[in-house]
């Protein structure tokens, strides 16, 4: 996975966020404040502009620029959280321009997960993006250990993220704005977990090209 791959991933996320904007906003309207789709869309539109203005030359630089731009443009909780996730991944991949292995990607995602957990204070089961990011990261690491090829491994990561997002439906939120609703947050998919699953779908889609 080279710099073109990671650039294509971010572009695919931007396209999917634009397409899924209303869906994400509807999920957020149920248990939050109805802006998750529009905030991420604004953020990734800015990311596309930043990538086009100064195309990064390494995989790490693509992800770092993505994260920095999200922090600068999104606001809310999702800006710092996704921004930190991408910046941590970028830092973990370092400054080299070598192809990233599955194990390397899994390690970078593990850094992203640690960063998100530290910043937001959420653990799995709190009904947040961590409920998708955690299982997907583990699934990718296991797949890499088993020596699966990229498409199989990213299938597993995507499936784990989607399953994790679905599994937030019966949960009561303990972090973020949905937690104010108490028991009324039960029965709704967490929008942050849903957008995380979208990013893993985009990753798998790019690997299949």
């Amino acid at each position: 996975m080279d710099v073109q791959f990671f650039t294509a991933w971010i572009e695919e996320i931007a396209r999917a966020v634009a397409d899924g904007r209303d869906h994400l906003t509807r999920l957020d309207a149920a248990i939050g404040d109805a802006d998750h789709g529009s905030n991420l869309d604004r953020g990734f539109t800015a990311v596309l502009a930043a990538l086009a203005a100064t195309p990064p030359e390494t995989p790490g630089a693509v992800l770092t620029l993505t994260g920095t731009t999200l922090i600068r443009k999104v606001g809310g909780a999702s800006g710092p959280l996704y921004g930190t996730a991408f910046r941590r991944m970028g830092a973990a991949l370092g400054q080299g321009d070598a192809d990233v292995t599955l194990a390397g990607l899994a390690a970078a995602l593990d850094e992203a997960l640690a960063g998100v957990r530290k910043l937001g204070g959420a653990t799995e089961g709190d009904k947040t993006m961590v409920d998708a990011l955690g299982p997907a990261t583990r699934a990718l690491a296991e797949a890499a250990d088993k020596g699966m090829d990229a498409e199989e491994a990213l299938d597993a990561a995507r499936d784990a993220a989607e399953e994790g997002a679905r599994a937030t439906i019966p949960l009561q939120a303990r972090k973020g704005r949905a937690s104010y609703l108490g028991e009324r947050s039960v029965g709704h998919e967490d929008p942050g977990a849903a957008s995380t699953a979208l990013m893993f779908r985009a990753l798998r889609a790019v690997a299949g090209r």
Binding site: D33, A34, D35, R72, K73, V74, G75, A77
Partner: peptide, 11 residues
């Protein structure tokens, strides 16, 4: 001021 109901950014 941030966007509607969205916190401002650090910048």
């Amino acid at each position: 001021p941030g966007e509607i109901f969205t916190s401002p950014v650090p910048d």
